[in-house]
Design a protein around this nucleic acid. Structure first.
Lengths: 210, 210
DNA sequence: CAGTCTTTTGAGAGCTACTCTCATTTCATG
DNA sequence: CATGAAATGAGAGTAGCTCTCAAAAGACTG
């Protein structure tokens, strides 16, 4: 999911020879822009990094950067995890309790995301804390994740994905996970993120009461 | 709270003669900018409205607009409800169940906000749906509301306001209310917003199960 | 392989949100 | 009324982002 840590891309272009040269080049360009951005941001900080610099290092024109990413923040936050989470959720046995499935899939996503490139994960959540624009944009992208979750919940429970109840439920979940990520980053990424997620899920299940 | 509807200002400058001329002028300028913005946005839409136009109609210079509001979105979304909600929460009897207090205060806030200027309320939530930048900025400001809620929860329950549990709880609540506002706006503001909030609180209390 | 068609790219102009500086005006104070 | 502090306006400058158009590069057909 968008709030979660993630690697630039789950697949390298070489893995998809079935794609035409055009498509493969596009994927490479996309990765080049993101890699350049991460490097520059790490060197000089987010605000000091301009699109022009990113374009230069990625060896494309500034126009091309905007063609691939609508905003500067998107270069940092975009990931490809939403569909993966969806698939994982669908793959869970239908009789498994919803919250159990959710917890399991979250753990999988964390495992997957962190393994891919832990440093990028941390830089990203760090930026969420430091740069308001990135945080805003992340939250914005979370609403996409929320919509996706609504769909998943609907498939599992038969409820209307457009109903207020489902939407509220999904959004409160997404908000909670966002806060968990922030909390983790604010505390220097210490401790196991998985444990934090567990505690978060506990709060959502039982409230603050116990 | 920030996601909630609200009037430009709860008090008119005339009500505070104890303030110096300087302070009163500042309040007036602030209101003039906001009023001008609402009018222009209503006439031409958000994106088509430039800071220059706003400045012209408010009869100030563009520099002054930025001196009062850090970003264009802030002109639209800033409100003064967070402290009011805090006070209301503190005023509730200490032995009242937390969720009851919360529900009560939410209703009060809605009542208050809608009465002040219903049209502005609706325009604002409409912009949340239509303009991504406004939605992002609203979400951003919600984290402020979330922090405030953490404080309130802490005062009521004695828990650490910085703990993961409290923060997650507050943020899921805020996210849920945000989604409720969006839902209301997407459905043409039909029906009683109070009822929607009640349903939202039900979901938060009991989950989707029942 | 040549030629055509389509997609992608680069170059550059242009808009606007936003920042910073400095001179001027406006209010507060003794 | 004079002196000091704060708010304003004017203007220059930065950078994100959009749009247009012509050149370059991959895809397809005879």
């Amino acid at each position: 999911m968008s709030t979660m840590t993630a690697a630039p891309s789950p697949f390298s272009p070489a893995d998809r020879p079935q794609l035409g040269l055009r498509e493969r080049k596009k994927i490479k360009t996309r990765e080049a822009i993101r890699t350049a951005t991460y490097a520059l941001v790490k060197e000089q900080g987010y605000d000091a990094t301009t699109i022009e610099q990113i374009a230069e290092r990625a060896e494309v024109s500034p126009s091309t950067v905007f063609r691939y990413f609508p905003t500067k923040e998107d270069i940092v936050i975009t990931d490809e995890f939403d569909p993966i989470i969806m698939d994982e959720l669908r793959a869970r046995p239908a009789d498994e309790p919803w919250l159990v499935s959710l917890r399991y899939v979250m753990h999988r996503a964390i495992q997957y995301g962190l393994k891919e490139d832990e440093e990028v994960s941390r830089l990203r959540s760090h930026l969420m804390v430091q740069v308001p624009a990135v945080r805003s944009r992340t939250m914005e992208s979370m609403s996409v994740t929320g919509t996706m979750l609504c769909q998943a919940i609907s498939e599992r429970t038969g409820r209307d994905p457009e109903s207020l109840e489902v939407r509220v439920y999904a959004m409160s979940l997404v908000g909670a996970l966002m806060e968990t990520t922030l909390y983790w980053a604010e505390h220097g990424h210490e401790g196991d993120f998985k444990d934090l997620v567990n505690r978060t899920m506990d709060v959502l299940e039982h409230g603050l009461s116990d």
